[in-house]
């Protein structure tokens, strides 16, 4: 009796399988659907064009305002002045050295604060007692403007290492909070499943909590990289002898708006590259763990 029953079931699977593969799209697309797709594509192209136009308009107004003396070019600099100064600085190679220094500090600060953040978040997950004890301290640290700690870092760590101190201080608390709250939001059913197999805490951590947190890691990294860059620039403002943050403050002090603007441009490029790298890595990680 069960024999016939199970062959019946097999047929059910087959039909279920074909339904899940073949459902949805029809082989030939209707003209209405094609029109819908064309309209969508047109919209995307139009948005991209508008974005470029906005940039051109801003640069044009800036250039015009400076050349026609609507504003004092000493105060605003101008795109053409930045381009020619950029050429000079490029020739000297200094601006690249500065960008690389800031980039290196950001990468080290980012990696360090992610590692520290993950480690502390794991401790907080591991022991809810420790988590409860430390909770008010985290809240206070989160609320405190970390920039205020600048002089302390300078005295304790010296002019170079204090940059890392500032970078980590600014990014690590948010990292811990995001990761720890992510760990707590993991489906309790998955944890119960592990418990039913008699899993140890370490097994639950490595086989469920960490892999399940991949999407959370990715968004935390994106927040962290921005904050680390803020910390690095802040640190350079306070104590550095080189780097983009240093050039920005120096340019400001000697009233060289061209240097300030050029450094800011390089900073924009740097932050785009950093964010791009992090989101590329994030996409790779998300795909690897099938959260896409």
């Amino acid at each position: 009796m069960y024999e016939s029953q199970s062959s019946n079931l097999k047929r059910n699977f087959e039909s279920e399988r074909s339904a899940s593969n073949g459902g949805g799209t029809t082989p030939t697309q209707s003209s209405e659907y094609n029109r819908f797709l064309r309209a969508r594509r047109r919209r995307v192209v139009s948005i991209r064009l508008s974005q470029v136009v906005v940039l051109i308009v801003i640069l044009a107004i800036w250039q015009l305002a400076a050349s026609l003396q609507w504003v004092n070019p000493m105060l605003t600099s101008s795109p053409s002045a930045i381009v020619s100064l950029f050429g000079q600085l490029l020739h000297q190679g200094k601006i690249f050295t500065d960008t690389l220094i800031t980039a290196k500090e950001t990468v080290i600060g980012f990696v360090a604060s992610m590692v520290i953040g993950i480690a502390i978040a794991i401790v907080l997950w591991w022991s809810s007692y420790v988590s409860n004890v430390l909770d008010p301290y985290l809240v206070v640290l989160n609320a405190l403007p970390k920039v205020a700690l600048g002089p302390i870092f300078y005295i304790w760590l010296g002019d170079q290492k204090s940059i890392y101190g500032m970078a980590i201080a600014i990014s690590v608390v948010v990292t811990i909070m995001m990761l720890a709250s992510g760990f707590h939001e993991i489906d309790k059913g998955k944890l119960k499943l592990m418990e039913s197999f008699g899993a140890s805490k370490w097994q639950v951590l490595t086989k469920v909590v960490l892999p399940a947190s991949v999407p959370n890691f990715v968004s935390t990294m994106k927040v962290n990289v921005g904050l680390t860059l803020v910390g690095v620039i802040m640190g350079e403002f306070l104590s550095a002898k080189a780097g983009l943050g240093f050039e920005i403050t120096y340019g400001g002090q000697v009233f060289q708006m061209g240097l300030v603007m050029t450094s800011i441009m390089m900073l924009v490029v740097l932050s785009l590259i950093m964010y791009g790298l992090v989101s590329y890595f994030g996409r790779w990680l998300t795909k690897k763990y099938h959260f896409d």
């Binding site: 489906d187 197999f197 899993a199 097994q203 086989k207 892999p211 763990y289 959260f291």
Partner: peptide, 22 residues
Amino acid sequence: LQHDYLFEWRDVLNNILIGAEV
């Protein structure tokens, strides 16, 4: 359990093996 609680980051075979692994 009431729900399957399959792990998104593992394929079907590796989901099935989680208990044996643990």
